[in-house]
Design a protein around this nucleic acid. Sequence first.
RNA 1: GCCCGAGUGGCGAAACGGCAGACGCGACGGACUCAAAAUCCGUUGUCCGCGAGGGCAUGUGGGUUCGAUUCCCACCUCGGGCACCA
Length: 958
Amino acid sequence: MASIPRHRYTAALANEIETRWQDRWEERRTFEAPNPSGPLADPARIAGREQLFILDMFPYPSGAGLHVGHPLGYIGTDVYGRYQRATGHNVLHALGYDAFGLPAEQHAIATGVHPRVNTEANIATMRRQLRRLGLAHDARRSISTTDESYYRWTQWIFLRIFDAWYDEDRRRARPIRELVDEWAAGTRPTGGAPWAELSHAERTRLVNSRRLAYLADAPVNWCPGLGTILANEEVTAEGRSDIGNYPVFTRTMRQWTLRITAYADRLLEDLDRLDWPESIKLMQRNWIGRSHGARVRFDSAAGPIEVFTTRPDTLFGATFMVLSPEHPLVDALTAPARRAEVEAYRARAGAATDAERASADRPKTGVPLGATATNPVTGAAIPVWIADYVLMGYGTGAIMAVPSGDQRDFDFARAHGLPIVATQMPPDAWFAAHGLAPTLDCAAWPAAFVGDGTYVQSRNDSLVLDGLASIDEAGARATAWLEARGLGRAATTYKLRDWLFSRQRYWGEPFPIVFGDDGEPLAVPDETLPVRLPELSDFTPQALAPDDERSEPAPPLSRVADWVGVELEVDDPITGERRPRARYRREVNVMPQWAGSCWYELRYLDPTNASRFVDADVERYWMGPRAPGHTGGVALYVGGVEHAVLHLLYARFWHKVLHDLGHVSSEEPFHRLFNQGYIQAHAYRDPRGQPVPAAEVVERDGAYEWRGEPVTREYGKMGKSLKNVVTPDEMYEEFGADTFRLYEMSMGPLDQSRAWNTRDVVGMQRFLQRVWRNVVDEDSGEVTVADAPAPDDLRRALHRTIAGVRDDMEGLRFNTAIAKLIELNNALTLHVGDRGDADASGAARGGAPREVVLPLVQMLAPLCPHVACELWERLGRTDDLTYAPFPVADPAWVASDTVEVPVQVNGKVRSRVVAPAGATDDALRDLALADERVRAALQGAAPRKVIVVPGRLVNLVV
RNA sequence: GCCCGAGUGGCGAAACGGCAGACGCGACGGACUCAAAAUCCGUUGUCCGCGAGGGCAUGUGGGUUCGAUUCCCACCUCGGGCACCA
């Protein structure tokens, strides 16, 4: 041990430096970002600096603690933020905690510790672990969604949504009072009986039915295993809960629902204005699932049946109809002779879980109702069936079946012997691909034909599609024909459903809603917020068997009688006047996990504001639109891809409501989104399949062993159960935070997933040791830099590095920025000479030039700030490195006077020539032709063609 | 099934259509050490050759181009999303 030089940059020294600088940053409040006004204002520090709001998806405070994968994105934003501070920006960067919701509550139930106790302990642990990472966060702005001072405003925003309706004409939300006023004034039809003829109760129900937050009896995802309903987005394709993997059943219940579908078009169209990864935009587009087509009326004995179709052009091929088993007209249409069979089928369909109904490749079942409907273009009476492949929740819950043009209908027709009529002649290639001669006899077809084909057998007295060849044109003609006769109209349908917003749990925001005797919801007055979540000693949901579909939700809050009953003065939604004090019953459901994350970025801006959720000027400063047409929003939002259709859709929706109602200037919450990858790890199992500690596995000749026993390797997430967790604390201990940060950033592009390899971390530690050694003598601790100017080649390397690193930092390419800095330091080391053997010899060579060392340290600062600050100070700088202007490349030194140009013969590199920078094409060609090796390669032949890329390459084509 | 994305040394990865493999790990050789660790220096895609040098190489097969890891088409493999959405 004595042989290690006293002043070597070891983990111990790194730890000492890091904790010292972390304390100093905190004392000096280095990372506090000033607001333009309000309690966090500091106009002097804002002047001349452009604002920049960068954001991480905030974590939920897990009891499991952090592993090395968690901070990847946080380090990325920290590096970017520190770089932007050095380029003169006023950077807002903070981190809060998403602490309400099912994960925290499930954990609390498992451990028997109250979620608040748990949550607070976990937040404290995470704060400590993250502080040790040296993140440049403004600590004043950290919030937890469970703080009363926070969820008070979550409730307040909910009330704004409750008190709003969507005006389709103006394409925006408006206060519900304006709707009441327009109805009362008679300027807007109610869609039913005139306002004046309605009773107060009827008016209340009408108004409530139009709110953006409404109670509705609707099919919901009931999950007895969790004791709550779930949003569609929280249910997996297998029909199980995202959390806990319990069965989910479809049940009709009266639940809070948010009218996100009103925003479907804007959520879809505004994606085009966002700087987001295309893949995420695509996922949101698919989730919203807008389809254009037509609604068409088919008359039946029980009244008109309306269908939605994207292919009105194929109406002539509609040979039967299929209704969803839950369709309201099924009863009326069912012939007495068919009733028993229909009822049996409906019962079976109802009992099937979503999982069973979801698999697309199972046989198409269904039963006929014994009724017919009239095809509006052919006048034919076609049979009506029910089948579970038609879903009540999409379109109208009924379809016209065109077996020749839709594979599902084709399968169904084949299974049940229903007629198939072609309306298009498929192209010859289609038949050829199926090994078939062209024919209109669909009995010979192996599948439905979907695509452009010439229309046939598609005409009646007044509508002729025959001879057309385009789906769009034929569809437009058919739709126009239907519209002219009142039989249908162009229509748009979405996959997106309204957002089921209540949970029968304890650990969430209580609704700021009470009920009177009529059972209609009423908003509690704003000034009574927050509606506090009562402290319960028994917070567990009632134990329900996960498979018991018939169980009933029992929200824990319903057990708190003195909380549920409340005496209040509330405003009458119809008159707008305050009612006399009376007794009400509180809503006992709570909001879902996603509520708090729908607006948290706004609270970072103004965390202490007691009179508004965020000050308008402060919001405009940080998030306002940057130019006409700009959506505004966070400048850079970094997080995992798993929230593509959950948090990211919900937050956009809330933000748009707030924008419509004039509460925020930005139209979108997150202007630029970046998805960081995941850090994964190898895990190892012994021959019995038991995971063994990954850290103790050794590799021998390409195989893996643990305690002499062969083990198998797999790859996946880090987790306790796989015994492959590596924690940041271990990395701090073994290498220091700077090395850890550098390693994570050097592993590859930030948006790519990669495998953790503790073995590789040492590379970055060696790099920092070499940098350190170029500045500080390892034995004496003396700073050894020289004031003499750097030689030209070193200076050139410096300026090229500066230009490259700036580029990489802007583009979040930290891995290549680090590679460039290592190269520069290697060049510097070469210049200083091998100092491994002597102290005097290094000094004799004059040490590393200060003009290179200082910018190198500055460029390192965003990546490994502690050691950079330490070196900066040891180099005699007394100014704050965090705000020292980032080095600027001198173009004169980025270019060099000579360039080495590769010479190709027929596209293969045969030689290189050195030419002056800016040499003409002719000069380059002559140099190339004069080259010995080129002449050998040409073997006396004269090039037929010469391609010269100035400064880059010569290619001689023989 | 449909829709995205990705395939480059032993490993993580670089490369505005222009020198494939920067940078790091590992491995091998050396220095220092009684020794080991740590650190430092050198070599390291692959094949042929003593060498100078040359051949082959970016999942596979085609194409565009003077020139393709990069652009286009088809296929294979892996990863992700959606999944009876009419």
